[in-house]
Amino acid sequence: MSDYEIMASPIPPQIPLVEYLALEPEPHLVAHECTACGARFFDRRNACAACFAAEFRDVDVATTGELRSFTIVSFAAPGVPVPFVAALVDCDGTSVRGNLVNTEPDPDHVTLGMKVKLATFPIGTDSAGTEAIGYGFEPAA
């Protein structure tokens, strides 16, 4: 990489870990919402699993929520770092799956019903210099 390129792009290009994570203008999750019944999906569907209608629109998911369930995974497949907190977060009526981050992964620091907010972080940089950005939830102060 030449000096010119470094100066022109001081921030490495980024790519979200999943397509439903939008990084701009501020990081947030985007769901496909059924225009008929309002059911939300993070992956693509041919028809709504709830009402069978076939039209969807993209909607932003709230970036704050409440911890509705969790587990602290201590034993996982090879290559998956443990321990980590896997969580189910209720983001203003939309259930979201994600890890609880920026807190100790033990039952004394994780409590059901705790308020959390979306957090993003780099998970690595590929050979082309692109940084992948993951998401999780952290305690909302």
């Binding site: 870990l17 993070f42 992956d43 587990t71 992948a132 993951g134």
Partner: peptide
């Protein structure tokens, strides 16, 4: 999900 890396352990379990 258009994931660029495995999700197990990164997005829940």
């Amino acid at each position: 999900f258009g994931a660029v890396a495995p999700l197990d352990g990164r997005v829940g379990t």
